[in-house]
Design a binder for these strands. Structure first.
Lengths: 342, 342
DNA sequence: TTGAAAGCGCTAACAT
DNA sequence: ATGTTAGCGCTTTCAA
């Protein structure tokens, strides 16, 4: 590869001049000289080294995206994918490249050596850090700014973007109550994610607001994955006890799993049981059925996350930005009035 | 950020020693000294700079992925996504980060300044370079090795991975012929992609092998996108002339578009018209229907592409690797025997 | 077993 | 308007 020296020699100027031509400033170069330099660059097929430049002005125009969870393949996950799409789109528009890291691999390797903050990214987007992870504390001790996606929680010392999990859960349970349901089960997410507790809180708040007594037997813990929703539904409907007329699953995948289980048990959704989730993600397992859900506008969320981290990067002093993404309750085919028992 | 100097000062050794501790060699360091250095690194929360290291040994452990086409969002594209998944998975396993570039943006900006080969990636994976693009020629003049995904074509001077487009098309058309079809339309892809011509060639070869005369009126040109398949099907079936009993679409998206159109026209698939595609990608537009298609094993293709580029990166002298990915014809619900006219 | 110092390719203050 | 040169943070040869 040709270096700036080669170009300088070839065009008979100093490296400084070449550099100024390269960057269109900050110094002005005589047009004739400039032309000579440009010609030399072309002839030598010269491309400035990102490494050398980065070493100087500490800026590489790349943002890192870390998926901390051991998600098999982030791109196949209905939550990650739209967010990532939004990130890639926004970053591209802003001329930033996107650096993907599968965090759990890097973390397990040597937890105190996060390659993604070794200068190859100007800033980081961290997906769903689970409760008790070691990355976030480590990240606080270094200079690359970062934004947490989906699990900012109550920590006021980190920048984050999320929906208001309590509110969206409250509203969607309210939606079920509005249809006349009083016996509503909740399939909550894994407890190592803060959102699980938040959505559960929204659920209890909605019940309380409607004067419906809370029944702990109706709250079952899953893990945000489809099979867990399936298993919980089977457990709930195959064992003895009074059945719920509706299920609020903490996300769409669990809701879809539940619907599959219910159908296998000969129950109709929503005639026999209503089901609602959160995410408005795609769910190929129940073709033709539109799940009642809370739309997090995940792509938009990814785009906003990029603008946030860019702001942090461009900001002189360290800052904390907290964003709550607006959401919408989207009625689908899976919620109806409760069945009146004979 | 602490530098290697800070660590050296703090532990009372030279920067050289710190470097050797950092890399576990090539020189051996006395255990006591090493311990002191490690302690200092920990205390200072030291992380070596990727830029500075890269500047020396020209290796950053990152592979670049360039999507040249103006795909809205690569992650939402049923061809790109599984390949990308495979890439991310394989790269992660090999401890490489993945750098995503939306090539058409970078290219349009200043076609002679490809940031993705400025040293921030050790090697590149290039998606579907269209015929006549300026990137590939430019890439040949620089040192970063690259592998072309999906459009290696006949150029023997570039490394590439693809399926045998002629063969897969020939086989799938053979599959249709096997059902008794003799009047088979072909919706071909955009002509700026080599695969379009290849698949079309496979189509004509299959016809020839079966002694079926080629009818140019049955070959229509789309662009690999769903709407084009829809439009072509409407055109074909709404205008006068003898209708085909089957359609071979050059990819699944066009096939799906065609099926939608046929259904709107009151035609049943496969009773009235059989339809086959290529890709085995997901297609939410025809829920419940399994499209007869040729499986390219796209995730696998992405994984193999990564191992290929890693081989090129690790190879001392420049090499060219050509890989043909195995494929399978996957029978679905959309192909049946032709309707016998009264 | 360790230190000193010369680069890697570029930028930008300091000269002229 | 342009050249000189001292770094950026690290690796590695050459010395000790």
């Amino acid at each position: 590869m040709a270096t700036i020296r080669d170009v300088a020699t070839r065009s008979g100027v100093s490296t400084a001049t070449v550099s100024y031509v390269l960057n269109n400033g900050p110094r002005t170069v005589r047009p004739r000289t400039q032309a000579r330099v440009l010609a030399a660059m072309r002839e030598l097929n010269y491309h400035p080294s990102a490494m050398a430049r980065g070493l100087n002005h500490k800026r590489v125009n790349s943002i890192g995206v870390v998926t901390l969870h051991s998600v098999q393949s982030p791109l196949e996950n209905p939550y990650y994918r739209p967010v990532l799409s939004g990130i890639v789109d926004a970053a591209t528009r802003l001329r930033q490249s996107v650096n993907l890291f599968n965090g759990n691999v890097w973390e397990s390797e040597s937890s105190d050596f996060p390659v993604f903050c070794d200068g190859r990214c100007d800033g980081l987007l961290i997906f769903l850090p689970y409760v008790g992870n070691t990355l976030i504390p480590a990240l606080k001790n270094q200079t690359a700014p970062f934004v947490i996606i989906g699990e900012g929680g109550t920590d006021p010392t980190v920048s984050s973007i999320d929906i208001d999990n309590v509110a969206v859960a409250r509203e969607i349970v309210g939606h079920l109550i509005g249809f006349g349901h009083r016996r509503i089960a909740h399939f909550q997410g894994a407890d190592y994610l803060l959102s699980s507790a938040d959505r559960r809180l929204g659920y209890t708040e909605a019940l309380a607001a409607a004067g419906i007594p809370f029944d702990p037997a109706l709250v079952l813990t899953g893990d945000y994955e489809t099979p867990s929703g399936y298993d919980l539904a089977r457990t709930l409907f195959e064992t003895a006890g009074e059945k719920p007329t509706a299920i609020f699953a903490a996300n769409d995948r669990m809701a879809v799993g539940a619907i599959k289980a219910l159908r296998e048990l000969g129950l109709d959704v929503p005639r026999d049981v209503s089901v609602a989730g959160i995410d408005c993600s795609s769910h190929p397992d129940i073709p033709g059925t539109r799940l009642t859900s809370g739309d997090q506008h995940l792509m938009q969320l990814g785009e906003t996350a990029v603008t946030m981290v860019m702001e942090l990067i461009n900001s002189a002093e360290p800052r904390i930005i907290k964003t709550l993404q607006p959401y919408d309750i989207v009625p689908g085919d899976t919620v109806g009035p409760p069945l009146i028992r004979a």
